[in-house]
């Protein structure tokens, strides 16, 4: 996959008017580094393809492929005004690609009460086939499951109860029931990741960490012998992924 530069649109609510009057505020670029660890031990693609991790349930496992989508970086200022960067990034840990996301939009310096991003796509952005770069990356969800895109593709192998290597496909998508022409959606499963308050002074770099072990841990102790493959059409599994993903990300540091 070539690193496609996604189309950028910046929705500015109220800010544009304010900016004209405020000579002190300047606009700066922001970027995000995505780093990964397993309960504190750093993980890169160099750690892939070997059974070397143990999850909360005690299962030994390997990571062979890990990609996930983040979108809609959102800043809220102290007046409650919200600025959404309408852009997305497919983090590809397998190939060490797009580990840094630098949206083209510029952000006014200042104090923000919260910065957040979406893990996956919000439903209204999750339209089937809408993004050629994601289609080219085979990131789609079949229409029988509601279409749109994967949130995460996490593939690997684990030692099952008979001590044999078995594949697992921890694929997070929008939870869906009744696959077919009229699928229904029991609840939203994209995740809003809140990073907390931030004062932006100069081209900040947000270092974001994902603890991969969290996906198997909290609140649902994941049993790979039970949930390993064919999880896309399994709304119970999807909702558990959504719950476990709540604590997977955190903001490690900001450099600016």
């Amino acid at each position: 996959m070539t690193r496609a530069v996604p189309i950028l649109l910046l929705f500015v609510v109220l800010f544009s008017c304010q900016k004209d009057n405020d000579d002190n505020a300047s606009n700066v670029s922001i970027s995000f580094n995505f780093m990964h660890h397993w309960d504190g031990t750093a993980v890169t693609n160099q750690d892939f393809n070997r059974i070397k991790f143990i999850n909360e349930n005690g299962e030994q496992l390997s990571i062979e492929r890990l990609r996930y989508l983040i979108s809609d970086v959102t800043l809220k200022n102290q007046n409650g005004e919200v600025l959404v960067i309408d852009d997305y990034n497919l983090v590809d840990v397998t190939n060490s690609e797009n580990l840094t996301f630098s949206p083209e939009a510029l952000i006014p310096t200042g104090v923000y009460s919260n910065i957040s991003f979406t893990f996956g796509f919000k439903n209204e952005k999750n339209s089937d086939g809408a993004y050629p770069d994601l289609n080219s990356a085979s990131w789609n969800v079949p229409q029988m499951l509601g279409g749109g895109y994967h949130y995460m593709q996490f593939d690997g192998k684990f030692l099952n109860s008979t001590n044999t290597e078995q594949g697992f496909n921890y694929h997070a998508i929008r939870a869906v029931d009744d696959p077919g022409d009229n699928p229904v959606f029991p609840q939203d499963t994209f995740i809003i990741v809140n990073l907390g308050p931030v004062t932006i002074t100069d081209t900040p770099v947000f270092n974001i960490e994902m603890n991969i072990a969290e996906w198997f841990k909290n609140p649902n102790t994941w049993d790979l012998n039970m949930y390993n493959q064919m999880l896309m059409p399994n709304s119970t599994a999807q909702i558990m992924m959504f719950e476990n993903g709540q604590h997977a990300f955190n903001l490690k540091t900001i450099e600016q």
């Binding site: 080219s136 085979s138 789609n140 079949p142 499951l145 593709q153 064919m230 999880l231 059409p233």
Partner: peptide, 16 residues
């Protein structure tokens, strides 16, 4: 269908 062929993860689809 992920429960049947599940070919689309590698072999493209109507969108690829």
């Amino acid at each position: 269908d992920e429960n049947k062929g599940d070919c689309f993860h590698c072999h493209g689809s109507d969108n690829n």
